[in-house]
Amino acid sequence: MNDNDIVLRVEDIHKSFGETEVLRGVSFDVRRGETKVFIGPSGTGKSTLLRCINQLTPPDHGRVWLDGEEVTNSGARINYFRQKIGMVFQNFFLFDHLTAVKNVELALLKVRGMGKAEAREKALTELRQVGLEDWADHYPAELSGGQAQRVSIARALAMDPDVILFDEPTSALDPELTREVLEVMKKLARNGMTMLVVTHEMGFACSVANEVLFMENGVVAEQGSPDLLLHDPRFTRMKDFIGRIDSRMDD
């Protein structure tokens, strides 16, 4: 495989909080256009892993490269890297004092230094992509959870990132609202966006992921393509885990 295709390289990430070691050496590569999905029991450090990638939580050990440039230990340049690494949070974290369109254009204005008209146009384009053009002038408090999350995806997209990290994007949403967000994410994946997704949505993982990584005890315990994992009898722990989720959902 051509090395130039590797957008993100993560090498041997360790992170402890106090006495507890949450990440014990996680490494993987992500190629352009790939969608990798992380699943696993809560508390196994999946969210922490994502935050270590864009240094919102600096790892204790390990390195991250974006397009060949090192992200870890980059000092003030981290702001530049964060523009190219998009992030979508479980609790959306939309800027409550701004309308939807202003949420999307704020970073364009303040970080990329775009002109007002250009930023506004781009923001509206992204909102259109997620289907929320008509809600541009509404405040976050006036949006449903699914709408808010879609705005937050638009906000991340507006920066034209090389990769987007999704941290349990639908976990805070009611089941009916989860679908609209997953549809947007599927569309992004189909259009070639490079994505890392932490989620419990197995349906999404199976239909869209190029690779599923099962994390347990701070390491990647099992990984493989969705087909492989579901059908190969070797991957027992992951299947157990999936089985448990599925049965919970049936209740």
């Binding site: 864009n54 919102l56 702001n79 530049y80 964060r82 949070f89 974290f93 800027f95 303040k110």
Partner: peptide
């Protein structure tokens, strides 16, 4: 979360 989101977008 407001600060986290802002920083994640690359804001100083």
């Amino acid at each position: 979360g407001q600060m986290i989101a802002a920083r994640s977008l690359g804001m100083s």
